[in-house]
């Protein structure tokens, strides 16, 4: 059975824990540790914040001219019947 000793080992597993990739027993160990260790709980909170801001804060709209050139390029280079050929 997995044992986790010390804050360092707990912190090494937080990314997987956040992804729901940890078995039930280890999950319980981590949750118990987070409940009683404020520094690790803070690391976990900041990790959750990091994932959330990456998810919501990364933009990069495709410019309209890039869209237009893509379509034009594909119309010129894709033989419309190509995919249908065996």
């Amino acid at each position: 059975m997995t044992t986790l000793k010390g804050c360092k080992e707990f912190c090494q597993r937080l990314s997987e824990y956040l992804d729901g990739e940890i078995g039930e027993h280890e999950c319980r160990l981590i949750e118990a540790h987070l409940a009683e260790c404020p520094p690790c709980a803070l690391v976990y909170r900041s990790l959750c914040t990091t994932v959330e801001v990456c998810n919501k804060g990364v933009s990069c709209e495709i410019p309209d001219d890039v869209r237009q050139r893509l379509l034009q390029f594909l119309r010129e280079h894709c033989d419309p019947g190509y995919a249908a050929k065996t």
């Binding site: 804050c7 803070l42 690391v43 909170r45 900041s46 919501k56």
Partner: peptide, 21 residues
């Protein structure tokens, strides 16, 4: 040996997602 700070973890999302953020 990871550490964290309340400055980041407790910063409101609207600040984190501001233009500068």
């Amino acid at each position: 040996f990871m550490t964290s700070s309340p400055e980041f973890a407790d910063t409101p999302l609207e600040v984190l997602l501001s233009q500068e953020g």
